[in-house]
């Protein structure tokens, strides 16, 4: 299988005044196409930092990070934005849909930044919304949708650019157990279709539904067999 992501001795430190705070210690991680991985850890374990680095929202202090063969260290801000656009599909805990525009328009957003013309965007966004089961809701505003539906819109938005990795940060955190479970089911389906998914969570029941589970504690990774 193709290697999508390769992290080699990644470290990340923050400075609180003069004091150095190391959040990630020599993280090594390899992910292949078609993987479904969950990163499990309590708050303060460094999992958000790891997600930011994987998502190219942040850069490591030390180490080497290859994403789809790109060395992230070499990229400037504009190139990083392009990598985020093409390679990563973000799903956030609180959905992060823009409230004043329709579901369809929300899903179109990443395609606007890819520079796709409007008719193509509408077509792709419509198809992917149909795929997540919201064919009849495309013109609804986010506040006219339930939490689970909003998260599906967010997943559609993450998938619309055909990214190498779907990166979900606590995707069930703002949902009740049943809807949360349905969202994970959707992930499982998408994974069976060959998509690479990384899911960050503090809920071990959710985490266990991935094919690989990695524990993070105080900035150290340990892979557990499932």
């Amino acid at each position: 299988m193709d290697e999508v992501l390769n992290m080699n001795n990644i470290c990340k430190s923050y400075y609180m005044g003069a004091e150095e705070l190391e959040v990630l210690h020599n993280v090594n991680l390899k992910i292949h196409t078609g993987d479904f991985l969950s990163i499990l850890g309590p708050s303060g374990s460094g999992k958000s930092t790891l997600m930011n680095i994987i998502g190219c929202l942040d850069v490591p202090t030390a180490g080497k990070y290859l994403l789809s063969g790109n060395d992230i260290d070499d990229l400037d801000e504009i190139e990083l934005a392009k990598v985020r656009n093409k390679e990563i599909g973000f799903v956030f805990q609180s959905f992060q849909l823009l409230p004043r525009i329709s579901a369809l328009h929300n899903v179109e957003l990443p395609l606007i930044y890819s520079g796709l013309p409007s008719p193509e965007r509408k077509k792709l966004a419509g198809e992917i919304l149909k795929r997540v089961g919201l064919a009849d809701k495309i013109q609804n505003l986010p506040n006219q949708l339930s939490g689970g539906q909003q998260q599906r819109v967010a997943i559609a938005r993450a998938l619309v650019t055909e990214p190498s990795i779907l990166l979900a940060d606590e995707p069930t955190g703002a949902l009740d157990q049943k809807t949360g479970s349905q969202v994970v089911e959707l992930f499982e389906q998408l994974n069976r279709e060959g998509r690479t998914i990384i899911m960050i969570t503090h809920d071990s029941n959710i985490a266990r539904r991935a094919r690989r589970v990695i524990h993070i504690l105080d900035g150290h990774l340990t892979e557990v067999e499932v």
Partner: peptide, 11 residues
Amino acid sequence: LRKALGATPNI
């Protein structure tokens, strides 16, 4: 969010 979705600073 826009930045995460791929908006460059210029945009």
